[in-house]
Each structure stands twice: as C-alpha cells, then as structure tokens.
Design a binder for these strands. Structure first.
Lengths: 211, 211
DNA sequence: ATTATCTATAGATCTATAGATAATGC
DNA sequence: ATTATCTATAGATCTATAGATAATGC
C-alpha cells in the first residue's frame, strides 16, 4: 500500500510549494501536478486544501513545542536560550509560508487560529518564566512591567522576523532569510535589561550573530 | 462629469472592503457590486486590481511620509515623538489590509515592494537621527550598535503591530486593534536605553498607553 | 473486500475586454 | 467629439465530487 507514502508525499510537496510560491499561489492542482498524481487522488487523501494546511500546521506546532519545552523547574542558562532561539528560527524557516501570510491565514481558519494563539501563550509563559528567573537571580534588572513588555516584544519580533526580513530589502526575497540577524535582534532586545557582567557577555556573544 | 467622482469612490470602497474582508477576499466584482456600477465601468477607471492597490498604496505612503517628516535640523521633543507614533499607527490602521498581508502583497507587486522598502529606509533614517540626537544630548545612554538594533526593532514592531495584535487573541479580530498598546510596546523598547530623569518620565507617560 | 488511483466534469468564480449605448461639454 | 457607463462574454482557473478502474491484502 503506497497509500501512506502518497499522503506523506502530498504533505511534503505542499510544504515545498507553499514555501516557494506562497500558499495563496499554490492550488491543489499544482500540488497534484507536481506529484504526478491526479487531483482526484489528492482529494482521496485530504478533504480539502485547508485540511492539508491544518496537517502541516500541526506538525509545525509540534516541532516548535519541542524547542519551547523548558525543563520544569531548572532555569536554563542564557547560552542555552540563544541556541534554542536559533533552533526556533530554523524550524520557523522550514514553514516560512506560514509567516509570510500569518494574519490572513489565521483569519480564514479558526482551528489554526486557536492553536496558534495557544502556542503563543505557551511561548509567552515560558519566556516570562525565564526572564523573571534571571531577575530573581540578579542577572537582570528591570521592573515587572518592563519584563512583561519585553516578553511581548520578543514574541512579536520572533513571529514576524522572517516577514520583516523579506520586506525590508527591495529586491526579490533573497534565498535564505537572515536568521542569525533575527537572533541578534532578539538579543539586543534583552541586552539593555541585563546587569554586568551578563550584559557584556551577551554583547560579545551577539557579535557572532551580526551580519 | 461624475468620472472623477467614480474613480474616487472606487478607491474609497476598495479600501473599505479590503480592510473589512482582507484584500485577497475582495474581487473587482465585489467592488463594482458594492458601488452599484458594472465591472466594465470599474475597468474603465482602473487597468487592473493591482492598479487599484498601487493607487491606494501611494496615498498611504504620502500619509505616512507626512508623519515621518522631521523638521530638518531641530531634534523633536520626546513628547512629540509619541504623538507622531500614535498618529502613525492610526494612519496604518486606516490601511490595515496592507499590514494584514504585507509580505505576500509586496512579493507579488514589484513597484509597491520597492516603494515600501524606501519608505522603511526613510523611517529608519529618521528614527536613527532622533535616537542619536538623544544620545548626544545625554538623554540616552547606549552604544551605537544598540541604537541601531533598537531602531530596527522599533521598525519591526511598528510595521507588524497590527498583525501581531490580530494574531495573539484566539477569537475573531476584535473590531479595533489596540493601537495604544502598540505605542506602549515601542515606548518599552526605548525606555531601557534612557537615562534618568527621562526614563522615569517616559515610564510615567507610558502608563497612559497601557491597556 | 478494501484501498488507492484515475478520468471527467459540474459548478462557481474571477479578470479583463469588446462593442454598444448614454451622457456631457463644447 | 469625448467621456462614462453598461451588457455580455471569452477564457482561465479552482475546488471538489461521482463513478469507473486498478492494485493490494487476506
């Protein structure tokens, strides 16, 4: 039974095409043609294009959750944080079609919208815990209000970095986005809140992520 | 000659519909129907849907440029800055369909993409000058690298605030975006770089923008 | 028997244009 | 004469399904 195989290949190919041409520019016909299967066959495996989108989103969500999961009570080292952030960007890049179109896409699909909002909530929770932890430990010096606002800004910059990078250069979206620059931007969001020697340490580390 | 009038009404109605339903969800037929004119008439006034989009963008660009224009050499007061920022958000909100779809839209239309990149460049320039000025004046204390990165983060947060606000709540996009919260987020981006007494002053002011 | 696949197509749009007709301004 | 508008439609898609056929696993 090549069935499992075909379903899988549909998802893989959809992802590739969505990333290449943007989701709105890819029809179920395109996907079927690229795979050399009939449109009918595609619809045997998926109820609709939205169904494909949802399956892709579920996988992406799982991939991000892996990165977000902070081991319960231990406070991660700062170094670990940047590594995670970079991994996060890489996994988002793998599903960049989502971030190219996020608002419109979530506006259309209620299920994905709800899941995304909850995913964002988990990220907020997780990052908030880390920064508050750093404050308790004395590595970070900022009032709770500032911490909350910074958490929100980190979320925003992270979610839209890929889109921003595509939009700020006038020329065609360069093949690869500048993910390192995204990590750098987030670092510079947090740096001003750190105490010495952590801040200098971070600034030195950040140099490696500059373009 | 109701001609001028009709052209104008097409633009106005397009804007309303785009904002309400999202640009991809609005066809030239919808626009014509809403106006009670024939599709043929619409195409008499505009070559294509893209033509309409471009005209709308040009108007929006002009509206933003008004706000960005910093009087040549005088350094604006901080108070003035927040007022401008709020005005900026309001004008962006008036064309929110753009920001709901920015990456995809710029990806499709080369002309708009180039203009947007240049607009962003002017904003970067303008804000960079302001923050550097504050540093010289001693109100702001941060190395040039930090200033540059903060400028970039302010641009990102500003451009995508409307999108972010729509995306972080799971429920249907609430009627009005929380523009004040956007201003607040940008303030909290800059606050950590300020020296006293400017910082405390800003934080107090920021309370008014909290939700 | 069940699962996978194909062919063919209905039905719904959408964009854009051609060509006729009406309205307007000299 | 020129400008504005309408009617009608070609041509291109797109999504999704019905129904026939092939392949597979017991």
């Amino acid at each position: 039974m090549s069935g499992r195989r075909t379903r899988e290949r549909i998802l893989e190919t959809s992802l590739v095409l969505f990333n290449e041409r943007g989701e709105p520019g890819v029809t179920t016909n395109h996907i079927a043609a690229e795979l050399d299967i009939s449109p009918g066959n595609l619809y045997y495996h998926f109820r609709s294009k939205d169904d494909i989108l949802e399956q892709l989103f579920l996988r992406h969500e799982a991939a991000l959750d892996e990165v977000l999961a902070v081991a319960g009570d231990t406070l991660p080292e700062l170094e670990d944080l940047w590594f995670r952030l970079h991994t996060l960007f890489e996994r988002m890049w793998a599903f960049r079609f989502l971030y190219r179109n996020l608002v419109e896409l979530l506006g259309r699909n209620r299920r994905i919208r709800l899941r995304f909002a909850r995913l964002l909530g988990r990220a907020r929770e997780s990052l908030g815990r880390v920064l508050s932890g750093l404050a308790l430990r004395g590595a970070l010096d900022a009032p709770p209000e500032q911490i909350r606002a910074t958490v929100e800004n980190v979320l925003l910059v992270t979610v839209f970095w890929i889109g921003f990078d595509a939009v700020r250069h006038g020329h065609e979206a360069s093949r690869g986005a500048d993910l390192a620059a995204g990590v750098y931007q987030v670092m510079m969001l947090i740096a001003p809140l750190l105490r010495e020697p952590e801040r200098t340490h971070l600034l030195r580390l950040a140099q490696a992520y500059r373009r």
